[in-house]
Design a protein around this nucleic acid. Structure first.
Length: 294
DNA sequence: CGCATTTCCTGGTAGC
DNA sequence: TGCTACCAGGAAATGC
């Protein structure tokens, strides 16, 4: 599941290839819809650079538009279809044909269609409310312990759910939320407003550390994620808790447990991550995990 | 307005 | 073998 480190890895690989290239035409292979809006406008514009905000790739175009891509859960961007298994061809959704030298085609392949690939007017993210209200970049100067603490103070949601909302900080998804909360010793169900200054500072550092370490490994491949050149990310081997329920906690040796927080599978260490107090979050989580009839 | 819930979608897997 | 049921989840849409 591409989160910030995976998208940043893709961005770094796309940047030298795409910067300055002119788009000849865009072919939409999926049914038209809001996830693929405005692609016809891209023809004739050149790509000024490849940027990123949180998990969104944002490519400003010379004609005043932005090409925005979100990989969702299974989206992959490749030069042509190189590096992908033959079985991926039927899930190719978009082809971007470039003028000039090879490779002159970018493919967006997305089996589960949770991704987006669209063109909007520069900076008009009204059709992507999460992007429009995105928190600060975790590796940028605006993300500070004070800012995070202040943001957490404003919400009564479970701290993990709040992190996943992208509002306190951009780009943290299910994997790195679990990893960062474990590193910081914060229970995922703790009400955000009850996370104290010391914990917020630890969480701030943990988020930066785990994202940086994962970027260094080109991200985490659990199943679908691949880099632009078809490589798997190397961070899966370094995960401390995500997907490891029942195994030993790498820090205390206790047994990691699984629960459901905001409809998301969550792994944590009950010994290292003590809940301060969150009666409201507890009630919601129990309702969520009990809802099984359907 | 803000939050909780539902929806989108298919490959992989468990169970029979 | 082949069938069904179910699970994974980021963000938008919908509901309250």
């Amino acid at each position: 599941m591409p989160e910030l480190p995976e998208v940043e890895t893709v961005r770094r690989q796309l940047q030298p290839w795409l910067t300055g290239r002119t788009i000849a035409k865009v072919t939409l292979l999926a049914p038209a819809g809001p996830k693929y809006a405005g692609l016809e406008r891209a023809a004739g514009q050149s790509i000024e650079r490849v940027g990123r905000r949180g998990k969104f790739l944002i490519m400003p175009l010379s004609g005043g538009d932005d090409l925005v891509a979100h990989l969702g859960m299974t989206g992959v961007i490749t030069p042509g279809s190189s590096g992908l298994p033959d079985s991926a061809a039927k899930h190719r959704r978009v082809e971007v044909h470039l003028e000039g030298g090879s490779p002159n085609r970018l493919d967006f392949t997305d089996p589960r269609r949770f991704g987006r690939f669209l063109v909007v007017e520069r900076g008009d993210y009204s059709c992507m409310p999460t992007l429009a209200a995105l928190g600060p970049e975790p590796l940028g100067p605006d993300f500070t312990p004070e800012q995070l603490a202040a943001s957490l103070r404003r919400s009564d949601m479970a701290v993990k759910t709040y992190l996943l909302s992208q509002r306190p900080v951009a780009g943290v998804g299910n994997i790195y939320a679990d990893e960062a909360l474990w590193r910081a010793g914060v229970h995922p169900l703790t009400s955000a407003s009850l996370v104290n200054e010391e914990q917020a500072t630890a969480l701030h550092q943990a988020i930066r550390d785990v994202l940086t370490a994962s970027i260094d490994a080109q991200g985490t491949t659990l199943s679908d994620y691949r880099t632009v050149y078809g490589e798997q990310g190397g961070y899966a081997d370094r995960l401390d808790v995500y997907g490891r329920a029942g195994a030993e906690c790498p820090r205390c040796g206790g047994q990691l447990e699984r629960l459901v927080v905001g409809q998301r599978g969550t792994t944590f260490c009950p010994d290292c991550q003590k809940r301060t107090a969150a009666p409201r979050a507890r009630k919601l989580a129990e309702r969520g995990s009990t809802r099984r009839s359907k």
